[in-house]
Computed example of a mutant assay.
Amino acid sequence: MKELNEKHVCEKCLAFFKEYPYNASIAAQINWLRSAVPDDIDPSLYECILGLRKIENEVTYNQIVRDYWQDNEPVYTEIKLQKIRDEYFDLAKNYVYYISFPFTEEVIEYKLVSTFTTSPPCYSIPFFEALAEKYKKTALLKLSLGKVEGKVTVVFAIVGSDDSFYDYSQIPPHGIIDTPKQLPF
């Protein structure tokens, strides 16, 4: 195990995910999450969930967006967190469903799906619960396409917050395991 970024990973999170099958298939990882995570996830894990998707700062976020758009003007899509909450939170608990972000260069949409995919990228319901807990439930998500490690993905910022830049579940980028994979949490 690599050295941890203490800002993002608490001991409780490490203990909870100790048995997580990091090197298993995506399907096996999802099955573990569905069986191990209770319907009402412990809110003390929210900071860890957010931290695993955190883009360190605005400079890095802007570079990720520029890496995709190059000399073209970036296109952004804005979605209110409350809209996602109203549409999906009562229907989907934890890791049974994901919110997928299919995209074109003109628009990024979102929809509820039962299968985790890396393309289009998906986010878990607990991730959105963690966002709602940390930021106002009425927060505005500003999404764009970006390139992370050469892969096109959806990245976003929380409008009006200085430290609120996230990418999809291409984690753990902060050294929780030796071989980062795209994980469904």
Rank of each mutant, 00 (worst) to 15 (best):
K142I: 02
I177P: 06
F156T: 06
H8W: 09
T104A: 11
G150M: 09
Y95D: 10
V75Y: 08
A92W: 04
L81N: 08
P121C: 05
L140P: 00
Q63D: 10
S119T: 12
Y46P: 07
L50P: 08
Q29L: 08
S44H: 01
L81Q: 09
K134S: 01
Y168E: 07
I79N: 03
K54R: 07
Y97W: 06
T138I: 11
V155I: 11
R85M: 02
I55L: 01
K12G: 00
E129Y: 07
R34S: 00
D162S: 11
V75P: 02
I158D: 07
I55D: 00
A130K: 00
Y46A: 08
E149F: 09
N72G: 07
G150V: 07
Q29A: 03
P21C: 12
I108N: 07
S44P: 00
F116N: 04
K80I: 03
Y97V: 01
E105V: 05
R66T: 11
Y20A: 14
V75L: 12
L14D: 02
H8R: 13
T60V: 11
F17D: 04
K83D: 13
A92C: 13
V107Y: 03
G146C: 07
S25I: 10
Q182R: 12
R85C: 02
K181M: 14
F89G: 04
F17H: 05
I55V: 05
V152P: 01
S124E: 09
F156G: 03
D167F: 01
F16Q: 06
